[in-house]
Design a protein around this nucleic acid. Structure first.
Lengths: 340, 340
DNA sequence: CGTGAAAATGATTGCGCAATCATTTCAGGG
DNA sequence: CCCTGAAATGATTGCGCAATCATTTTCACG
């Protein structure tokens, strides 16, 4: 194709290796996939032949012949949100170590695209699948159920998973933060997020908060939602807007730490006293949250851990091992800091 | 496997669909892959049959039969570093839109693992590959060259790519920042990073800086490198350490913005005047960089764009279209802000 | 030193699909 | 109405490997 590249010779196959080593193809296959079933002598000869020919296993053919690949599809709604990335990283860590490859699908929070992705990925005969969230099209759920192989839904903890579930209850997280704010004496609490309609986990945190406010007979407000994706600058702007539009507000619960940290940095620059003039709380537990001044009260979600557990659960099941909790509620952790 | 899941019936194949629709398997294959070559009548019947049977194409078989898949392997050294994630996101965006799937490999900055990953991924008969960095084992380079299909090396811009290359010159970036610091009057400049031996792009930035210092006859120092991965808290600690150990230092060039922003937040908390007591500069252009006080002088690297361009280049070549620049030097952008 | 069971190796087959070539159908001109 | 070429459809084949079963070799033990 390009001047510097050698012409692509036909790549070596199992058969070539077999001939080169003077054994049958089947023995080569075994030497590569179950080395312990082949005698030392032959294994050595075969390894030498593999090196000599630069043989690379054709995994496609292998997957077809054995009706199953070692590719694990991972479907997330976004890659611009750190949260999903960290989950993917956790999955990767465990899966790659166990010899699985990750195939990555991004739905952009679109359930139709999610269906397409699931459907396409099934075509790779994977041994299982990991998918973010528990809200899917009926078609998607049915497709996965009929498929009958292990599936892990991550991020949130919820009822009636398709198969397995690892996550945390965002509703409870919202409740916990609201209880904290109320206990601290805040009475006019505002929830601020981005694309809350699409990010229904954020919506659940809002609902959890709302329920607590109702319980305490406090003023309840619609969540304030912006159309752009979450980013720190937006958080800063939102803070200013809240101060202007709802001067009585005494606390903001941001949908995530990107927004919340952005708000704190802005407050600092503008000389707004946090938490005196207004308290700020976030969700996720970003590294910066503990370093800003004032440090941010937030809820730590164990993203990496969720990914790891999800992958472990899946691999256990793929390997046919049995006793597993189908639903894992990873706990979140309130981090009360200076901003409230 | 689990009580709630239906027994997995044998999944429908092309042949099943063909029988259901009363046509030959080949026609079904065409209807699915090149719809325009099949008459409207049959296409409708076939689509109906597909729906009726819930048929999902077996991509493994397709890939084997046509000796090529539409999976693009992407190999990165880490997923905990935002930089790579953003590149992956950029690649994803373009690749998924063009109907390709991404397979993700993580080398943890280990060149042996990189070789293994490349080798394994070749087994999926991909049409091309994207790999981070230009430093590989000879074996890896040779393997890819002999393979003969399009390969894009990303992140940095360098000489003699395996095939194609999209990135920026980290050496020049280091020079640019050093020139800026020197022009501002700083004379005792320290470079601080994490795992600089493994992160050789950071090392190149250091070298670029070092050359400029030498040129101006200024004091040159070894880079200060920590063994843990970069994180903001480490940046803060490093700042304190530099102040204590090298009290004459008047500027720190951090290997990345995570460290630099962490240092600024720490300075703020400790009441250290930036840039008066010591100037701070970073690299990458994180969103928080412009929001901290003082705002951070840094170099913006177009990560997402690098990913997009890499994917575009690759797909162009895969599609057999010709006139393409083999090497793309995406420009970086100095952002001079308050911290210097 | 023979025997039987276990271990190692080999031959055959088919996974599900697309490339390829062969055949049929169709539209339009004479 | 036939002929021709193009479009649509079909039949055959093989991609490269692992599952499966058949065969050979090895080894422990009487």
């Amino acid at each position: 194709m390009s001047p510097t590249k050698a012409p692509a010779e036909r790549t070596a196959t199992l058969k070539d290796v077999a001939e080169h080593a003077g054994v049958s193809p089947m023995t080569v296959s075994r030497a590569l996939n179950k080395p312990e079933t082949v005698s030392d002598t032959l294994r050595a000869r075969i390894d030498a032949a593999v090196d000599a020919l630069g043989y690379v296993q054709n995994l496609v053919a292998g997957a077809l012949a054995s009706a199953g690949s070692n590719v694990i599809p991972v479907i997330v709604p976004s890659l611009s949100n750190t949260v999903f990335v960290e989950i993917v990283a956790g999955i990767q860590e465990v899966a790659q170590a166990a010899g699985y490859q990750l195939m990555l699908g991004n739905t952009e929070y679109d359930l139709e695209r999610e269906y397409t992705a699931v459907s396409t990925f099934l075509g790779w005969s994977p041994p299982g699948m990991i998918i973010a969230g528990m809200r899917h099209l009926d078609r998607t759920r049915n497709l996965l159920k009929r498929w009958g192989k292990p599936v892990v839904e991550t991020m949130e903890f919820g009822a009636q998973p398709i198969d397995m579930n690892v996550g945390l209850s965002h509703y409870k997280a919202g409740e916990a933060m609201a209880e904290h704010l109320v206990a601290r004496g805040y009475r006019q609490i505002v929830f601020v997020g981005c694309r809350i309609d699409a990010d229904y986990r954020a919506a659940q945190r809002y609902k959890g908060m709302d329920r607590v406010l109702a319980k305490h007979g406090l003023a309840r407000r619609e969540a304030l939602s912006y159309e752009e994706p979450s980013n720190p600058a937006r958080g800063g702007d939102a803070l200013m807007e809240v101060l202007r539009m709802k001067p009585k507000a005494d606390a903001i619960f941001f949908a995530n730490d990107d927004l919340a940290v952005g708000a704190i940095l802005r407050a600092q620059r503008e000389g707004i006293a946090v938490p005196k003039r207004i308290a700020i709380a976030g969700f996720n537990g970003l590294p910066f949250a503990s370093l800003v001044t004032p440090s941010l009260t937030t809820i730590m979600s164990p993203r990496h851990e969720i990914g790891r557990i999800a992958a472990q659960q899946l691999i256990e099941r793929i390997s046919g091992r049995t006793p597993i909790k189908r639903r894992v509620d990873v706990s979140f952790e309130m981090q009360v800091r200076e901003s409230t």
